[in-house]
Design a protein around this nucleic acid. Sequence first.
DNA 1: CTATTTTGTCACCACTTGGTAACAAAAAAC
DNA 2: GTTTTTTGTTACCAAGTGGTGACAAAATAG
Lengths: 221, 221
Amino acid sequence: MPEIDTPPAKSRRNKEQTKQKLIDAVGRLLCDKGCQSVGINSVAREAGVDKALIYRYFKDLNGLLRAYTQQKDFWIKKGDEVDISTLPTTELEQTAKNFYQEFFTDFWDNCEVLELLKWELMGKNGASDIIAEERGLNAERWIERIQKVWHPAGIDTAAMLSLINGGLYFLAMHAKMHQKYDTIDLGTDQGRERIQDTVEQLLTMIFHCADHLPPKEVNDN
Amino acid sequence: MPEIDTPPAKSRRNKEQTKQKLIDAVGRLLCDKGCQSVGINSVAREAGVDKALIYRYFKDLNGLLRAYTQQKDFWIKKGDEVDISTLPTTELEQTAKNFYQEFFTDFWDNCEVLELLKWELMGKNGASDIIAEERGLNAERWIERIQKVWHPAGIDTAAMLSLINGGLYFLAMHAKMHQKYDTIDLGTDQGRERIQDTVEQLLTMIFHCADHLPPKEVNDN
DNA sequence: CTATTTTGTCACCACTTGGTAACAAAAAAC
DNA sequence: GTTTTTTGTTACCAAGTGGTGACAAAATAG
């Protein structure tokens, strides 16, 4: 193998180019038809390539999916550029709010991310585990970073963040399929802003009120 | 048609009994194999009945699904027995907490409800709309009831409830498929209690802190 | 008892799915 | 040049899907 640096991908019969076609087809199919319809046949058809090549190049549909998620790298970037460990608590609140605003606009309309999340919920396939693993690793990283500098008294930070994130994920996924969720019209900008504002209020409450809450009452009712 | 009152369902060849077999099969299949595998063939097979009867009796798989959701009536009951409109605000907080505790234990392990929620998120089928419609109607009812008596200053009650509910739904669905969500071990009792406690803390904050929040800051960053 | 309607079964259709083996053609190695 | 490896295509498989029409058997009506 004569190691030509970056074989120019000029012509037909190009392995890397074909692999890329398949990876791209996964993304397109996710957006257009949803995670349900990502299968060997449909991906190959969408890519304009024979399905046998999926097995040859990726061993599996799972292999192709892993290549896809790793190449796209949806989850990493956010929150890596700011070093929160040096911030004073007063600015931490604003940083958190900014982060969530960015987080929000980053996935709310991102059909690929939302379909991957759905897929993670569906289960059944081993693909679900691959996605969960890929996303979970990065999420754990930034949760731990936040926990180091932010630990309001009596608040389970990790659980709180999971609950808020989960809520946002759920509403975003729901918005893709149905115009309204209960009384909120998620399809409109107003509806989306109601959710954003609510998250902001939630953060405000957590930062301002968490430290002087009444002691936990025992509920024997 | 000689109108025999409640035909005793004694023997083979009983229409109502067969319909019930099919409806029950839907529920069993949802729990065992998930919403993905609820189709004409599998339902008929699970019910031990020929699939032609689904078309004859319910016209559709959607028809069968509608009969199923209406008969099961998952969403109605909760919160209908307490008349919150007469409660003083001080007890409202405890009522809300109790409600969420009940709400929580009601769906967290209820495989049928969780699979219906998944189905609602998946979309594609018209079945998704049927489920969303059936659940949404009842959810809207109790949200409106709560809004009448509970309107903390500057809090969008409906959006707040949707966010919390969505978060709980998401985590519950996730727990069915994967042991952990990020750093929370949802498969254990401890993990579940962390979520429950967090919801309770959230409610405490909302009831105690919402009225004296700092005015909303303009974010020009 | 005979005739008709209802309930259930069977066989079939066209189509899609995941998966494989055999083969043609291009590219590279010799 | 010839051989060998790589890239792509074709054809096929068994199994499953949604859906329909023909038909047997039971239950009812006359």
